[in-house]
Computed example of a mutant assay.
Amino acid sequence: MATALAASLLLGAAVETSAAAEAAKQLFGGVTLPTRAEPGAVGFYSKGCLAGGVAIPTDGPTWQAMRLSRNRRWGHPQMISLIEQFSQDATKIGWPGLLLGDISQPRGGPMLNGHASHQIGLDADIWFTPMPNRQLSVKEREDQPFISMLQEDKFLTVDPKRWTSKHAELVMLAASYPQVERVFVNPAIKKKLCETWKGDRSDLGKVRPIYGHDAHFHIRIKCPKGATDCKPQAAVTAGDGCDKSLAWWFTDEPWAKPKKDPNAPPPKPPRQMQLSDMPKACAAILKAPGPANEQVVTYGGGAASVSALQQTPQTPASVEAIIATQPGVMPDTIPVPLPRPAGN
């Protein structure tokens, strides 16, 4: 992959120059197809892009993709493969199937709204709502609300009427795969797991607390082996994570405003990420040609390839029109305190 990208850098430089004044999220959010290239995760989870992305089918035997209009069911083949395996394994513990949230855009990169990460095809969101025993319509996939696992009147308390032992098993199953590096959940959910999980706790340290993950959890896998363009995250600290690093999230410190130095110069106004801020290969990926529709295939997991764009028996007829005409609606990114405990 590195050789192919290097050959495209001159083309990418032209894109970078012409797009210098446009935010990177506008550039990547406007691309509807992946590159015709070998798969490659480039950069870091929150500053990078994706070459050779593949899409998971909108429907599988043990999953259904949600919010189709966002066109965010693309990822590195290793991520898509994991989702398929996870969805199958989940049924073995009594979970009826997965509702899939955002994975990545066709070429990764920053999104127009909703996420700071998910940029290199190695992150995926899974709803805490189980898959129903029927196929959801396109409208239902757009409109079905997120259901928080927290009590409405208590921001950091799990609702015992919603959270079940099966939810706990599902999260711990996700953390059990060796390629999974982190599973992000709300701090209250992590606390609940620390207090109640009676099984093997060796993977509990992978489950990391972070705000905003109360209606879904977020799976992050490691950089693929040999992916020299992928920047790994620091390893999770040893232990189960049920320590002072978790207690920190229940203090006032995450919400405290930073102290201002009266002698410091005024801060610079916020600046959106530009293409020039990203790895140089991302300009080439943005410029690279995409495949013809019939060549855009999902990861089949060893089965026959399924087109990501053409209709399949499981795909509602209006999906393509929705993807083409409706922007995804999602709240602004939930603020994450910085600094925060190591490992998150």
Rank of each mutant, 00 (worst) to 15 (best):
K166A: 14
T228M: 14
P224C: 09
A281Q: 15
H167A: 09
E140V: 02
P258Y: 01
C230R: 01
S69P: 04
P269V: 00
T237F: 01
N186T: 01
P96S: 14
I80H: 00
P327L: 09
G302F: 01
G52E: 10
I323E: 13
L112K: 06
P178L: 10
W63P: 04
S69Q: 12
I103N: 06
V336C: 06
G109T: 03
P77H: 11
V171F: 05
T62W: 00
E152F: 03
P39S: 06
Q310D: 09
T35E: 07
P209Y: 01
E320T: 04
R271D: 12
A21Q: 11
T333L: 13
G241L: 03
V138I: 06
T315A: 12
L82C: 02
F146T: 12
V31I: 14
P178I: 04
P160S: 03
A21M: 07
K192F: 02
R72E: 15
P265C: 05
I219T: 07
S245I: 04
A288R: 11
N263A: 12
G205K: 04
L136A: 08
G30L: 02
W249A: 01
A41G: 02
L286V: 08
D153K: 13
P187K: 05
A308I: 04
K244W: 00
T325N: 11
K198F: 00
V236K: 10
D59P: 07
W74G: 06
W127A: 13
C194A: 03
F250P: 08
A24S: 14
T325R: 11
E169H: 13
K257M: 04
Q64A: 03
A283S: 15
L9A: 11
T333E: 14
S46D: 12
T35V: 05
R340M: 04
D159W: 06
R201D: 04
A124G: 15
T35N: 11
L246S: 03
T251H: 02
D143L: 07
D159Y: 04
L173Y: 05
N293T: 14
W95I: 02
H213S: 09
S245Q: 09
K25R: 15
E169A: 12
A21I: 00
P279Q: 11
I323R: 03
D261N: 13
L82Q: 05
W74P: 07
S8T: 00
E142Y: 01
Q295D: 15
W127C: 01
Q314L: 04
F217M: 13
T196E: 15
T91S: 03
Q85S: 08
A7V: 05
R271M: 08
A342D: 10
F184W: 05
L170Q: 07
I83G: 05
V236H: 00
A303P: 02
Q64I: 06
R201M: 07
K206V: 06
